[in-house]
């Protein structure tokens, strides 16, 4: 499936809206360096990630280089640089999950979806994030997909979860095709 054309078309007004919104947010902060992290947090709270344009605007506002803003932001796990997917996947790498092979589960998701930790698939369906403990160590290794806890993860379950969403999506697509007149 290729959404690139429609996404590009939708992308332009999005970008302008983003720039306008970020500019409005920046007005709430003076240009002191100590505001850098609060600004980034504010932007991420709203947009769920830090877009390159937003990073540039923050750099200009504070009067430092864009690379420096990026350097600070990448130091902290809380900031992300890709929009989250419709189905965010969080793989736990806390102590218990680590012991039970959480890194193998992460690798399985990464390979299955063709993206790395912190990235989003091009169709915006999935994103992968590593987290440290979701509070149910007895079920290790654990992944959280769409807020649903998936305990006792195994490579076969990774396949199953991704396949499940794909089937669901195909079903929705088919239903849409059967309802002409309804714009997508």
């Amino acid at each position: 499936m290729n959404y690139s054309a429609s996404e590009e078309e939708a992308g332009l007004p999005d970008k302008i809206a983003l720039e306008r919104d970020v500019a409005a947010r920046l007005k709430g902060f003076d240009n002191h360096r100590r505001n850098l992290i609060p600004i980034l947090q504010d932007i991420q709270d709203h947009f769920l990630y830090l877009a390159p344009e937003a990073i540039l605007m923050v750099a200009e506002h504070i009067g430092i280089g864009a690379s420096e803003v990026y350097g600070v932001a990448t130091f902290y796990n809380q900031f992300r640089f890709h929009p989250p997917g419709r189905h965010p996947i969080k793989v736990c790498l806390g102590t218990a999950c680590h012991v039970r092979g959480g890194d193998i589960i992460l690798e399985n998701f990464e390979r299955k979806l063709g993206i790395s930790d912190g990235e989003t698939t091009t169709d915006r369906e999935f994103s992968i994030e590593r987290v440290a403990c979701v509070g149910c160590c007895a079920l290790a290794p654990v992944a959280v997909v769409d807020e649903n806890i998936q305990g006792h993860m195994a490579p076969s379950k990774v396949e199953g979860i991704v396949l499940g969403y794909k089937i669901e999506r195909d079903r929705i697509d088919r239903e849409r095709e059967n309802e002409p007149g309804e714009p997508a």
Binding site: I55, G65, S67, E68, Y70, T74
Partner: peptide, 22 residues
């Protein structure tokens, strides 16, 4: 005056980056 590069990321992942510089 203003470096056009910086340390990015952390720990084993730390790299020099030019990200976002015009």
């Amino acid at each position: 005056g203003q470096p056009r590069m910086t340390f990015a990321k952390r720990g084993f992942e730390t790299v020099i980056s030019f990200y976002g510089e015009k």
